[in-house]
Amino acid sequence: MKVVVDMNKCQDHGQCVFAAPDVFRLDDSGHLAYVADPGEELRDEIEEAADVCPLQAIRIED
């Protein structure tokens, strides 16, 4: 599983950080940082993060 974030769409709202804090975080500048190749055990959290993203910038590739 690979997490892909369209950084051209992302506006750093941070909803994904609340949904999947083991994968997403805001860096010191307030910009999104994430783990591109997380473990499969985090899939449910990542799917939730993708669902709550206001700009639908997150997708999962298998």
Results as ranks from 00 to 15, higher is better:
Ala57Gln: 03
Cys53Ser: 02
Phe18His: 05
Val5Gln: 04
Gln56Ser: 12
Gly14Glu: 08
Asp44Gly: 11
Lys9Phe: 06
Arg59Leu: 07
Gly14Asn: 05
Gly30Ile: 05
Arg25Pro: 02
Ser29Met: 14
Met7Trp: 12
Val52Ile: 07
Asp12His: 13
Cys16Gln: 01
Glu41Gly: 01
Lys2Ala: 10
Glu41Cys: 09
Asp28His: 12
Val17Cys: 01
Val5Thr: 05
Tyr34Met: 05
Pro21Tyr: 10
Ala36Glu: 10
Tyr34Ile: 06
Asp28Ile: 10
Ala19Arg: 00
Cys16Asn: 02
Ala19Trp: 02
Val4Asp: 12
Glu61Cys: 14
Ala57Leu: 13
Gln56Lys: 15
Gly39Tyr: 13
Pro38Asp: 04
Ile46Lys: 03
Arg25Gly: 01
Asp27Tyr: 04
Met7Ile: 08
Asn8Pro: 13
Asp37Glu: 15
Gly39Gln: 11
Cys10Ile: 08
Leu42Pro: 05
Asp37Gly: 15
Phe24Pro: 02
Glu47Lys: 08
Val17Pro: 11
Gly14Val: 06
Ala19His: 06
Ile46Glu: 13
Leu32Phe: 07
Val52Asp: 00
Asp62Pro: 14
Pro54Asn: 04
Gly30Trp: 08
Asp44Phe: 12
Lys2Gly: 06
Asp6Thr: 05
Asn8Val: 06
Asp12Tyr: 14
Val35Gln: 10
Ala33His: 14
Leu55Trp: 13
Gly30His: 12
Ala19Cys: 11
Ile58Pro: 00
Asp37Ala: 15
Glu47Tyr: 09
Ala33Val: 15
Leu55Arg: 09
Glu48Asn: 12
Asp62Glu: 05
Asp22Tyr: 03
Asp28Met: 05
Phe24Met: 04
Ala36Gln: 10
Glu61Arg: 06
Pro38Ala: 01
Ala49Arg: 06
Cys16Tyr: 03
Leu26Trp: 04
Ala19Pro: 07
Asp28Pro: 14
Cys16Arg: 01
Asp37Thr: 13
Val23Tyr: 02
Glu40Cys: 07
Asp37Gln: 07
Phe24Ile: 00
Asp28Lys: 13
Asp22Met: 13
Asp12Glu: 07
Asp6His: 10
Cys10Arg: 06
Cys10Lys: 11
Lys9Gln: 15
Asn8Lys: 14
His31Trp: 09
Ala36Leu: 11
Gly30Leu: 06
Glu40Lys: 13
Val3Lys: 00
Ile60Trp: 14
Val4Pro: 01
Ala49Leu: 12
Asp12Ser: 09
Pro38Thr: 10
Val5Ser: 01
Glu45Asp: 15
Pro54Ile: 04
Pro38Trp: 08
Met1Pro: 15
Asp44Pro: 15
His31Thr: 06
His13Asn: 04
Arg25Asp: 00
Glu41Asn: 10
Tyr34Asn: 03
Glu61Tyr: 11
Val35His: 04
Pro38Cys: 08
Met1His: 02
Asp22Arg: 02
Phe18Asn: 07
Ala33Glu: 03
Asp28Ala: 06
Glu45Pro: 11
Ile46Pro: 08
Ala20Cys: 13
Ala57Glu: 07
Val17Ala: 03
Arg43Ala: 11
Leu42Ile: 01
Arg59Met: 03
Asp6Asn: 09
Ile58Val: 12
Ile58His: 04
Glu47Leu: 11
Ala19Leu: 00
Gly30Asp: 06
Ile58Phe: 00
Arg25Ile: 05
Gln11Met: 13
Gly30Tyr: 10
Ala20Gly: 08
Glu41Arg: 02
Met7Val: 15
Asp28Cys: 05
Asp51Pro: 12
